[in-house]
């Protein structure tokens, strides 16, 4: 058995998600290689070659791979796989891997196994369904397995090695039906909601959008991302990309702080994998207390300024 991990990077650095995926790959087979695709990726390569576990870095450095268009990447990956004997192909289940993985699987006519959180053996995996409200244990019958890995469930592997690399030359062309236009990085200095170590969210109890400022100071002090419940989004307090929950973003930070959130089923579904949950709510009967490690009953408008102070 031999695994190939497709590396996610931003053109300069590899992403932590890739290191977690390599850790997962090692649990399937000790023999792990990686493939990285991009344009002018010498920095990425330098960094990648330090990675433990892997035996070889395969790379393809071409202008048309710069913007990581799935149509272009999948073409190259498929031609790379020709005459090679990989049994498992793994990607992180980030938007990068979610976009690309099913394309590779489909070309190979296999059923991708999405977002695995646990590995039992080379063909048996656990994956969350219903936003983590149930865990499905599945066995794949495909001879080659394409898998996306939930990065928060596997520790990133260390980087104390010196691995050899090999360039892969391609003749394939750029897709004519899709082209890159722009990328707008989120302006916020705060971390991404889905990868932040700490998330603080407000709910209907915040009463209006203006009051979310009360959370900002705390978020700044903790280096936290900011989120909201569906009720707060539906009420127009904050934009809907802030929404945490089953139909919004699924988060699994070390600490999730729920402020003025009652704890509707669909919100809980999006936060229940957090290591610790703290909540602030004036209604001590609110369901959120049943899911919180630390609950504080009281008026959030009094508590939040105190909390910000206390964090000094």
């Amino acid at each position: 058995m031999k695994s190939l991990v497709i590396i996610e990077h931003d053109g300069k650095n590899i992403k932590q998600t890739s290191l977690s995926t390599i850790t997962a790959a090692e649990q399937i087979s000790k023999d792990v290689e990686v493939l990285v695709l991009g344009s002018n990726i010498s920095g990425v390569l330098e960094n990648l070659k330090k990675t433990d576990i892997i035996s070889k870095v395969n790379y393809c450095d071409e202008d048309f791979l710069k913007h990581q268009i799935a149509e272009n990447l999948s073409e190259v990956i498929i031609s790379f796989l020709k005459d090679k004997e990989f049994t498992h192909i793994l990607l992180p289940s980030s938007t990068f891997g979610k976009n690309l993985g099913p394309k590779i699987a489909t070309i190979l006519d296999v059923q991708q196994i999405s977002d695995i959180i646990e590995i039992f053996d080379h063909e048996t995996f656990a994956r969350p369904i219903y936003a983590g409200n149930a865990i499905s244990k599945v066995k794949s019958k495909d001879s080659l397995k394409v898998i996306t890995v939930r990065p928060t469930c596997f520790e990133p592997c260390a980087q104390n090695s010196n691995v050899s690399d090999e360039k892969f030359e391609v003749s394939s062309n750029q897709s004519k039906s899709v082209e890159f236009v722009t990328y707008d990085q989120s302006e916020s200095d705060r971390p991404e909601l889905t990868s932040a170590k700490i998330v603080i969210s407000g709910g209907r109890g915040m009463q209006n959008g203006e009051n979310f400022k009360l959370l900002e100071g705390i978020a700044d002090k903790l280096g936290a991302a900011m989120g909201a419940s569906r009720a707060a989004v539906d009420a127009g307090f904050v934009p809907n990309d802030w929404q945490v929950g089953q139909t919004g973003k699924i988060v699994a930070p070390d600490l999730y702080i729920a402020v003025g959130i009652s704890g509707a089923i669909q919100h809980i579904a999006g936060i229940k994998d957090s290591k610790f949950i703290a909540c602030i709510n004036k209604d001590e009967e609110a369901p959120i207390f049943n899911f919180s490690d630390y609950g504080l009953v009281g008026d959030l408008f009094e508590i939040l300024p105190k909390l910000e102070n206390e964090l000094n």
């Binding site: 059923q111 983590g132 149930a134 599945v138 019958k141 495909d142 949950i277 630390y294 504080l296």
Partner: peptide, 23 residues
């Protein structure tokens, strides 16, 4: 189907923690 569902389980339960008195 290419996948066989061996079993579906409840996720590990989250236990209610404690209430703290103040900030």
């Amino acid at each position: 189907p290419r996948l066989e569902v061996l079993e579906v389980n409840d996720p590990p339960e989250r236990k209610a923690g404690i209430k703290v008195p103040d900030v």
